[in-house]
Design a protein around this nucleic acid. Sequence first.
DNA 1: GTCTATACGAAGATAGAC
DNA 2: GTCTATCTTCGTATAGAC
Lengths: 191, 191
Amino acid sequence: MAGEVRKRMVDGAMALLARRGLQSTSFSEVLAATGAPRGSLYHHFPGGKDQLIGAAVDQAGAVLTDALETVAGGTAEAVVERFLAIWRIVLTRSQCEAGCAVLAVTVASGSAELLSHATVVFRAWRSRLADLLEQGGLSPAQALRLATVLIASAEGAVVLSRADKSLEPFEVVAQQLLEQVRAIDMRATAG
Amino acid sequence: MAGEVRKRMVDGAMALLARRGLQSTSFSEVLAATGAPRGSLYHHFPGGKDQLIGAAVDQAGAVLTDALETVAGGTAEAVVERFLAIWRIVLTRSQCEAGCAVLAVTVASGSAELLSHATVVFRAWRSRLADLLEQGGLSPAQALRLATVLIASAEGAVVLSRADKSLEPFEVVAQQLLEQVRAIDMRATAG
DNA sequence: GTCTATACGAAGATAGAC
DNA sequence: GTCTATCTTCGTATAGAC
């Protein structure tokens, strides 16, 4: 297939971004991690590294939104649980050595164009999460607020757990977020 | 003074880490940003770049804990407000282009030794914040939980605001954190 | 304690053969 | 579409004069 090698490269870049940051996500590392041929790099990515990283950020965005679709139509609590579960998997699978590729690019972005990819992905997450939470019973305003808090808290919690090499900070934050959505649900049900 | 040049270098490294990440915090950039003499680098930091970055992370930790001391003895709400105000200043002063130096190192750490500096700083923040919140009226367990949530949420919110080039995501999260500490306070007062 | 010069390697990017 | 070879730039690190 035509896009086979390209996909391997994007996957590799995404994984490296999440684990080691923008600096270490070099062409050599991507090729070593994927076994992709070096000669294909500028064939698939004539724009060079920025194009490869941009594609990796976009894909990281799509992977998460896709993973969220399994709870479309569920309760707000189920949406929060699903979102947290995704990040918990990232941490556990990597022994707390990997995190978010989009965050990694945001805090180390060399070019404005690359940063704009991260901007778009975060906005898309926020927007989709808000939709799902609204479907789950929250008011539009509540849904948008909670979506923002959810992304910020989870991203920060993942960083703390990486620094601590322990799930504990993440679980403390996860617990708090679940209590929060339950409290909103209760108020909505009561009101 | 003996430590004058060294301090300028650490300050410059800290600022660059917060704004552009670990990759762009090169010796050349640090020297260009500080006007410090190149010949002094390995005199003050025989351990090379890791030692300089390690010192910058340590100092970033100290800067925040120092800034928190002004609310020692205040209410839990005042502690939260102060912590948020510190990050708000980082964002506003930089037009949302700077964030946390410790986070930057955590997600791009090249060496285990460097990561351990970040580990220590995050733990120190958490511990000191929990102390202050406990002094402000929270139970020890509540204080530790809120300190963790506070750091995670603020760190994540700063990243979102950087990606969005807008204070809005940060303010949404800040509002939520303030409501949270007020709710705990009320329960404590009522109970 | 500071300076200049330089060695060394890594990374991004390009050229041209196959 | 892939490969090898190479060029340039940059960043870390060292040496040795002042």
